[in-house]
């Protein structure tokens, strides 16, 4: 089980350094058709997959990504821990 989490962490870190910075399919279409400007900047805590206080862009994204991986797993982990079990 741990292997998958390690794999996810590795993919998130690699993505921070090597992922394409080009707009994705929808963003590209929005730009081409001229409504991309409608999207306001996000106010989320790690908006744009950046941890706010880290200046180095890739490191910041890597940290945000690892946080996201653990948060995502955490939802399911917490569900398991809060559930009663049959034994």
């Amino acid at each position: 089980m741990k292997k998958i989490i390690f794999l996810a962490v590795a993919v998130a870190i690699l993505a921070a350094f090597f992922a394409s910075a080009n707009p994705d399919g929808l963003d590209h279409v929005a730009e081409t058709l001229g409504f991309g400007g409608k999207a306001a900047a996000s106010t989320a805590i790690m908006a744009d997959y950046k941890v706010p206080f880290i200046p180095h862009a890739c490191v910041s994204t890597a940290l945000a990504g690892v946080t996201g991986v653990l948060l995502t797993f955490g939802i399911f982990w917490a569900t398991i821990k809060l559930s009663g079990k049959t034994k």
Binding site: I4, A8, V11, A12, A15, F18, S20, N22, V69, T72
Partner: peptide, 18 residues
């Protein structure tokens, strides 16, 4: 549920990889 958590975290990471 553990498998769901693992799949979710892997998909989260993979979605970052544009």
């Amino acid at each position: 549920l553990y498998l769901m958590g693992m799949a979710a975290s892997l998909i989260f990471a993979a979605q970052m990889f544009n």
